[in-house]
Design a protein around this nucleic acid. Structure first.
Lengths: 165, 165
DNA sequence: CTGGTTGCAAAACCTTTGCAAAGTC
DNA sequence: GACTTTGCAAAGGTTTTGCAACCAG
């Protein structure tokens, strides 16, 4: 349904149209097939969940969402799917301080930083250029090439600061 | 031995003299006793390991170091000790992207940022003020109060960049 | 059909916890 | 002697893996 989705370059960091599950699935299917891989129920389910809540979800949240959507899909397949989609650059993961990893669609190719609230745990996006200067300093002075999107900064969000403890 | 160590304010973030295990242990013992807690073999062992390699160690590395130093000390006690010493502000932990938590002595009260190399996994300290400006922006624009020391930035260290793959 | 993928169940991690015994002050 | 802390062993929680059955292309 909804004809003509853009055909994306087959290999690279995979820009994929956001939010609409149908076309997202179709696009990803193309990428997969171009590599000899397949579009399957677990993969559809994971993509649907990720597209449905354009957010940063823990593996557990994705597992829950998936089994709502397609109860036949097994936990393990969700993990395997996340691994596959990461390899293809379709999802990205962010390590967050307390307890784990958050996954989100790689809306475009651009890595952006995140903050996680250490109280409520929610993850929020930050502008892609926020750490440019810091990255330059760290590169110049210490020789490290930063990947600003790979871990979330930690802090306290305004809501949790307002509602103290 | 080595007489007269500084007596530290009993409650607060606990600045503790670095590197020398003897006096570190003595100082921490004071802090502990002031709270009705005790200096024990596991705690001595953990402190010795942390002082010995002034570095950022994973729980596993600390467990290993400890059982070299005092094989009678059990894994679980190491975890409990790290928890206790964190509560007292004597050690701090940093969440690092891949696989866990790194512990280090809280040399002084100042929180500083870290980078972890995503290839070799090593953690290095960064200057305390590195993220001041970013923190100000994030606070001003989004209302988040950052804790810059709580998670390590992720990147590739010069060594690992030079030795590609 | 062919072979990439799955569900399942078990394993592999890592960290936490209940409890009686031991050790610290 | 009082009470904190330990060692042990078992439980918890999350992610990974081996394998036969399955299903997408």
């Amino acid at each position: 349904m909804t004809a003509g989705h853009v055909v994306h370059p087959v290999i690279s960091p995979a820009p994929v149209a956001p939010t609409d599950p149908e076309s997202l699935i179709a696009d990803v299917a193309t990428v997969l097939r171009a590599r000899g891989e397949r579009m399957t129920r677990p993969r559809r389910a994971v993509l649907t969940v990720l597209a449905g809540r354009n957010d940063h979800l823990s593996a557990e949240e994705i597992v829950d969402g998936v089994s709502l959507h397609d109860p036949a899909v097994h936990r393990a397949s969700v993990y395997r799917t996340l691994e596959t989609l990461s390899r293809l650059g379709i999802v990205q993961h962010v390590h967050v301080g307390h307890g784990g990893t958050a996954y989100h669609l790689a809306a475009d190719g651009v890595r952006h930083p995140h903050v996680q609230c250490r109280v409520c745990g929610r993850v929020r996006d930050l502008p892609p250029d926020l750490l440019d200067e810091v990255a330059a300093v760290v590169a110049g002075r210490y020789g490290y090439v930063l990947d600003v999107g790979h871990v979330a900064l930690s802090g306290t969000c305004p809501d949790c600061a307002a509602r103290p403890r």
